[in-house]
């Protein structure tokens, strides 16, 4: 189960990387990055899953005493929360940049933005 999720995550990352490397449209690159970010988050979640265990919440299903044997690793879930938010922040920033770039040159092609080089 964990392997399947992890493999999917890696696949998404590779798809995102491929998209970012081959698409010239800025917006498509940003979408590709979002896909890659999702893939990374999926991989993080997949690490820490243990067969036959349940969510790390102490309520009717799991009592405080047997939490140790009943819950999965809560740390990756906490990490992925942060990672998602950071991904959103960077995506928002990139979109704002794209808007500014488009305003100036009315082009969404990355090849048109090579004014600084060498």
């Amino acid at each position: 189960m964990a392997h399947l999720a992890m493999a999917t995550g890696f696949l998404l990352i590779l798809i995102g990387a491929w998209g970012a490397l081959t698409n010239r449209n800025l917006l498509r690159m940003i979408v590709a990055f979002t896909i890659a970010d999702t893939g990374v988050n999926l991989v993080i979640i997949a690490v820490g899953y243990m067969r036959g265990r349940t969510a790390p919440i102490i309520d009717g299903a799991v009592s405080a005493a047997d939490a140790v044997t009943r819950i999965i690793d809560p740390v990756p879930q906490a990490l992925v929360l942060t990672a998602i938010v950071i991904g959103v922040g960077v995506t928002a920033l990139m979109l704002a940049y794209t808007y500014r770039l488009f305003e100036k040159k009315r082009s969404l092609d990355i090849r048109d933005y090579t004014d600084l080089k060498g």
Binding site: G48, P56, I57, I58, D59, A64, A67, V68, I71, D73, P74, V75, Q77, A78, L81, T82
Partner: peptide
């Protein structure tokens, strides 16, 4: 670390959602 969180969260921090306590 996961073991520590599993064992100690409820007693030390009083939170039922361990992920929340960590975050």
């Amino acid at each position: 670390t996961a073991r520590y969180y599993a064992e100690r969260t409820a007693a030390d921090l009083g939170a039922a959602n361990i992920v929340t306590a960590i975050v």
